[in-house]
């Protein structure tokens, strides 16, 4: 074998070894990066699970103060004594709820007076993210619960809508919520409940109940168990609502 041949052979051998080393390195990198990716995903999922579990603690029975006057599994405040049940799920931050109150509220009040319907008001907090982190939906709903316990739900409900803050604003302050309460005759026990956030965990719980019943948006209007909507999920007109009540009266 000539010297040139030997050189060529050893160069070839070196190349093969290098290629094997590179392949080995690729294999190792693939294995370890795969392990890392799986670990990251498992940890991320675990964090989500853990946060959910800690949030669920807030709605455990021991953490929730259910307003004494609440009906329908402690989720709503009843107004009126009529045979037809109207369930209204509303968020005090929701502009369309306010629109419905302005548009159909007087008709509902008349139906209550005429003893045609029992209205169950369900405050829910689905727009907590729309108040710059102040959770206005929860705070206002909790305040309404305090008002209900002190026998002034309707009055307070109406004054909250009359003073509805713009969606996306910080909402009304607790002080303003208390001031509005005083304007409809609520007193010290109401003020304490708002300041102590007595019913805030209850709001979380009833919002959960709302979702578990398969409802997603506010206002959700249900007459004798049947959801009432306009065409294409729009807000029902007063006429559509009246027809639904008449149909329920049979």
């Amino acid at each position: 074998m000539s010297k040139g041949d030997r050189d060529r052979k050893s160069a070839q051998a070196r190349k093969i070894v290098e290629a094997q080393k590179a392949a080995e390195r690729r294999r190792k990198v693939t294995i370890w990066t795969t392990v890392a990716v799986v670990a990251v995903l498992v940890i991320a999922g675990g964090i989500g699970w853990g946060v959910l579990a800690s949030q669920n603690k807030k709605t455990e029975a021991s953490q929730v103060t259910t307003p004494s006057v609440a009906v329908d599994e402690g989720t709503a405040f009843a107004v009126g004594t009529g045979p037809v049940t109207v369930d209204l799920y509303e968020d005090f931050m929701c502009p369309i709820c306010n629109q419905f109150e302005q548009q159909t509220g007087p008709t509902i009040k008349q139906m209550v007076t005429d003893k045609r319907v029992t209205v169950r008001y369900h405050p829910v907090a689905i727009l907590d993210e729309a108040s710059n982190g102040t959770k206005y939906s929860t705070r206002s709903g909790g305040a309404a619960a305090a008002a209900a316990v002190d026998g002034k739900f309707t009055e307070y409900h109406d004054v909250l809508y009359a003073n509805q803050p713009e969606e996306g604003s910080s909402g009304l302050t607790d002080a303003k919520l208390i001031e509005l309460g005083k304007s409809v005759g609520l007193g010290a026990s109401f003020e304490t409940a708002v300041n102590d956030k007595t019913y805030d965990n209850w709001m979380t719980k009833v919002t959960d109940t709302f979702a578990s019943r398969g409802f997603n948006g506010t206002p959700t209007i249900v007459v004798n168990g049947k959801q009432v909507e306009g065409p294409n999920n729009t807000l029902p007109t007063t006429a559509v609502f009246e027809q639904a009540v008449q149909a329920a009266e049979g």
Binding site: V40, L41, A44, G45, I47, G48, W49, Q55
Partner: peptide
């Protein structure tokens, strides 16, 4: 609850 954390991880 889990989905947003998974999305961020990915």
């Amino acid at each position: 609850a889990v989905q947003p954390f998974l999305e961020i991880a990915v």
